[in-house]
């Protein structure tokens, strides 16, 4: 690892000030489960770490509009097992518990989860070209191993996929990311605008600005506790990243769809959702036929790169399966 300095921030303002005042690369550290991983592989090479665990961001609280605010430093485990999350947002709870291992969930924080980086083999191996790690060096995955890579929204510069399960559920739930920084103060970023597609800047993964800190994630009032499903398709039944994951949430009036959300993981550089396509199915019957048509539209334009070709039919089948399970709940 790098020869880093380590400080612990006492409060949010102090943390941001510290971050802005340091010379060299600064990283906030919450759980550290992804950052230390990448530092040990020398993919991330910060000069300073600022521990944010002492900030008052470790609560889960109700919001004025009837939603829930998940503190940025609450662990994934405490969030997933939180009574209100389990009851009102079971989709989120289920997705979070499908991720990583018990130990990692006991450490990883909500803020950090949003910032976790791709599992692309070439991103992790500093001896190979990677535009994300070293802009301009090329993408080794295009003609290399790309079994776990993106089929949607990718670019010629990067076909990496986003590894989070939590973010997929958050995308389906229309959560909002709360951030604060020196220049712009407090601001909210809708989850769908938080992560970016790779384009020609795959090294820029989110719309978080330099020195900005995630303080929390706000869940809206609607949590789809009745009709939801999270299906994670992977190469090992536990402790493996998603090849394809689907977060499905529905609201039904009898057999009629009144609201429908489908977010996909493992298929793109960010959690993949198409709200405009979902809206076409409002008022339609919650039938297998409609689910199949919807799946077709959601995956429209998908491209395989060899090893990951199987994800295209798999994603469609998994969408239909998730929706079917959701209405059967």
């Amino acid at each position: 690892m790098n020869n880093i300095s380590f400080t612990r921030a006492e409060n949010i303002e102090g943390a941001i000030k510290k971050a802005n005042n340091k010379q060299g690369k600064v990283k906030f550290i919450g759980g550290g489960t992804n950052l230390l991983d990448l530092m040990k592989y020398r993919v991330e090479n910060p000069d300073h770490l600022i521990d944010i665990n002492e900030l008052k961001l470790s609560k889960i609280e109700s919001t004025e509009v009837g939603g829930l605010l998940l503190g940025a430093t609450v662990t994934n485990a405490d969030t997933a097992y939180h009574e209100e999350v389990e009851q009102r947002y079971p989709l989120l709870s289920k997705a979070m518990l499908a991720a990583a291992s018990t130990q990692l969930r006991n450490m990883a924080t909500n803020g950090g989860n949003l910032l976790q980086r791709t599992r692309c083999y070439y991103f992790y191996d500093t001896s190979t070209p990677c535009n994300k790690r070293e802009p301009g060096s090329g993408c080794s995955a295009l003609e290399g191993f790309n079994r776990i890579h993106a089929i949607l929204g990718e670019s010629e510069h990067c076909i990496a996929s986003h590894p989070s399960d939590m973010a997929v559920a958050l995308a389906a739930l229309d959560a909002t990311v709360k951030v604060t920084g020196e220049e712009e103060g407090h601001r909210s970023i809708p989850i769908l605008e938080f992560h970016r597609l790779p384009g020609d800047t795959p090294h820029i993964e989110t719309n978080l600005k330099d020195g900005e800190l995630i303080t929390g994630i706000e869940l809206p009032k609607k949590g789809f506790p009745e009709h939801y499903a999270y299906i994670k398709v992977r190469d090992r039944p536990s402790y493996a990243f998603a090849l394809v994951s689907v977060a499905a949430a529905l609201e039904l009036d009898g057999e009629e769809i009144t609201d429908i959300r489908i977010a996909l993981g493992g298929v793109a550089h960010k959690p993949w959702r198409k709200p405009e396509v979902e809206k076409e199915y409002y008022g339609k019957k919650a039938s297998r036929e409609n689910f199949e048509a919807l799946a077709e539209k959601l995956i429209e334009g998908a491209t395989g790169y060899g090893d990951n070709d199987f994800k295209i039919p798999l994603a469609k089948k998994t969408i239909v399966r998730a929706l079917t399970e959701a209405i059967e709940k």
């Binding site: 380590f6 612990r8 550290i29 759980g31 550290g32 489960t33 230390l36 991983d37 040990k40 592989y41 770490l49 521990d51 665990n53 485990a77 291992s101 018990t102 130990q103 990692l104 006991n106 450490m107």
Partner: peptide, 26 residues
Amino acid sequence: DHGQCGACTVLVNGKHINSCFTLAAM
């Protein structure tokens, strides 16, 4: 040494974590 095996599991305040993925200073 990368949170992938669990051999380093210890309990912190009763919860089990991977000790390879946290700094002693934390």
